[in-house]
Nucleic acid binder design. Structure first.
Lengths: 148, 148
DNA sequence: TATTGTTATACTCTATAACTATA
DNA sequence: TATAGTTATAGAGTATAACAATA
């Protein structure tokens, strides 16, 4: 019976941008999770909070569209932010089906701290990258996003 | 009560490479899932099969390390490939704790077809990208992967 | 003692169908 | 009829602890 090979590699998969993208994503997201942990936030709750801070009164369905997260999956996320007192649901009196989502003062305070931490996180992570590198990467990723 | 705002955006999050990376990844992975579906493969089962084809006799623990997937999570994936008759576990007689993973003829045949489909998929997806674009992107992603 | 494969478990993420209340 | 929010549910992905067999 053969012993396990000593030369093992992932050459075949390396030929795929998707594979490389996923591996790069893993590095960033696991690192980001550590950064957000002290704030009791995950990537998705941070993102949702960021949107609500940026667009006060945004609806869950709009949040869903912007974040590309299915509406049902956002309910628990919004619940979580609300239970922690970071945001409020305010019923829209002109369309009583809908709720506007607003940050609380606590939410604004926490977000500004988390934002600074995440910015610092990326700054450290990409300290070896020039502004031009970042600009190129950003542009390439934007092109991928807009493919379909 | 305020109506939901008409100007809604994700400007704050757009400043983060991680956010853009995740969105680009979503585009590619959901598209890739469609490509792999006819073969009864997912991204992870395709990747595992690719590794086993490339490095015949590879162990589950080596697969785990190469794919950055925890060992326990690979057991079900290897089980799935084996149940479909695409790979075999062969006990390593020199180290009876271990099993070498080998593709079957069926597995080799399916993989070659799936590989061609995935290659074609990326070719179409990146048809608007020059070779230089791909090379740049690949290099930038490799640098991210090697950050830590 | 350490390693290989494994079981069990739990938490997160993602996707779909269907309900309610409102429009 | 259609939309906003919601419930229920199920499938994937991911992480950790601990076990049996073997080194």
């Amino acid at each position: 019976m053969s012993q396990a090979p000593t030369s093992k590699n992932d050459t075949a998969l390396r030929g795929f941008v998707g594979y490389r993208l996923k591996r790069a994503m893993n590095v960033i997201s696991s690192d980001l999770a550590v950064t957000l942990k002290p704030f009791g936030l995950r990537m998705i709750t941070f993102s949702a909070l960021a949107m609500i801070v940026e667009t006060r009164g945004i609806r869950l369905s709009q949040l869903s569209e912007l974040l590309s997260v299915e509406r049902p999956n956002l309910v628990a996320i919004v619940d979580e932010l609300q239970k922690r007192g970071l945001i409020e649901r305010k019923r829209d009196e002109t369309d009583r089906r809908a709720y506007g989502l607003f940050p609380t003062p606590t939410g604004l305070e926490l977000f500004s701290q988390a934002l600074a931490a995440v910015q610092h996180h990326e700054q450290v992570l990409f300290s070896g990258f020039s502004d031009d590198d970042i600009a190129q990467l950003t542009q390439l990723l934007a092109r991928i996003e807009n493919i379909s």
